[in-house]
Amino acid sequence: MSSATRFSSGGGGGPVSEAITTKLQQAFSPTHLEVRNESHMHNVPQNSETHFKVIVISDKFKDAKTPIKRHRLINETLREEVAADGPVHALSIVAMTPDKWQAKLDQGESVGPSPNCRGGDGSLPPKH
């Protein structure tokens, strides 16, 4: 836990970002955690907390062999945030074990930003 890091781009750690960070830390005790607020890439008011990318690296994914299982674990943890009436409009997920993550880093790979919005969901209420 002490080595967990938090990264937030595009507007500080607001309440939603904080809630996501806390829940992921509690659920997964990640060796590495990034919660990136990507809302600024979308057509939403400044300092919005609607679009996020989370990078969760945890030993707890050892039993979740397929990506769909790992993603479901995270969706479940952030259920309130991603619900139809919740604050988060889009959630991009990178979830892997520390070994896989290290292998990715060793290959010089990194996690880039999500694709830019294409205008179909700029208003706040509709969800991704």
Binding site: A90, S114, P115, C117, R118, G120, D121, H128
Partner: peptide, 15 residues
């Protein structure tokens, strides 16, 4: 998806 093959209306759907 959001939109169509020709006009995806979301970056994730486009990907």
């Amino acid at each position: 998806m959001k939109g169509s093959k020709l006009f995806p209306q979301c970056g994730f759907s486009n990907t």
